[in-house]
Design a protein around this nucleic acid. Structure first.
Lengths: 155, 155
DNA sequence: TCCATTCCAAGTAATCCTATATGATTAATT
DNA sequence: AATTAATCATATAGGATTACTTGGAATGGA
């Protein structure tokens, strides 16, 4: 994946983040079958497959094939940030002016000025935010909202 | 314009902001013809027309038709924020999960949790940032980068 | 009147998004 | 070994969006 543009959140990013939180909440140490996530979150299973294919290749989830197989998080929820997930599914989380990335744009142009003063600051602000949130935070928040005990994770 | 989704910056937003800064920098009180902006900023004039049509209808620029006509900012640069420009051209600057806007999504769902914890925070962060920057800031920054005296304020 | 300029309405080609569908592969269970 | 539950890999198609282009009408200054 080579995109650097983004910042529109497509269903890939939104579904993917939801599915990852679902996984964090519902995996009791074992594997979770895709269809169960798709069912709970009301997302097309076929489509989710593609999302998970991307997540797996990026090393964010691990899979086990065959009967009783499924997916698990590849790391502790506290080590997986929202930013990492979005970046994998949406491309680099940056507000870039493509044209000013192209070589040859003068350092003195208005374009460059806007890039530095606006786009780059937006990019930094967004990245700081999403990198500060982990799946653990979201799973805890979800449990809190539902008044459920905060189960400890398997080591 | 009814969009609420966004956060992808299209050329409308990028060209429009550039053109507005150009206008702030190059209008010496008079009107500026579109073709001159298009030329300086290397943007298709025909396309810029559409952008300015939107800006005009939103009251951010004023136009004068006929020979020697052109555009001017509708207000002082210090009163026009980057946020206002982007909002007009791109729609509301928010990271919304369309599906969770649809009625009927449970308050307890993971979806809702993500909306509150992630999308809404991103939205707030972005809006605070773009609303804190004005055309005056950008014009000054541009002049500073080019080592030019800041005519409006230092003379 | 001529011409520069804004204004307006459509059309369009390309790209991206969002799925859906199909079939292959893998591995646990029976 | 056969069955079954699951992932894995592509292909494709409709729709939406983007980024323009085209053609002309209206306006007003010289």
């Amino acid at each position: 994946m080579d995109r650097v543009i983004l910042v529109k959140l497509s269903t890939k990013g939104r579904y993917g983040l939801r599915a990852m939180v679902d996984l964090a909440v519902h995996s009791g140490g074992g594997h979770v079958a895709l269809y169960s996530i798709a069912e709970r979150e009301n997302i097309s299973e076929n489509y989710l497959e593609q999302v998970f294919s991307t997540l797996r290749k990026a090393g964010l989830v691990k899979s086990v094939k065959g009967a009783q197989g499924g997916y698990t998080l590849a790391d502790k929820p506290s080590n997986i940030t929202v930013g990492a997930i979005l970046r994998v599914l949406e491309g680099n989380l940056s507000v870039v002016d493509e044209d000013s990335e192209a070589s040859g744009i003068g350092e003195n142009s208005i374009q460059h000025c806007i890039k530095v003063a606006v786009w780059d600051r937006m990019t930094e602000s967004l990245n700081k935010l999403v990198d500060s949130m982990t799946l653990e935070d979201l799973a805890n928040e979800y449990r809190r909202m539902n008044g459920k005990a905060n189960l400890m994770y398997y080591i």
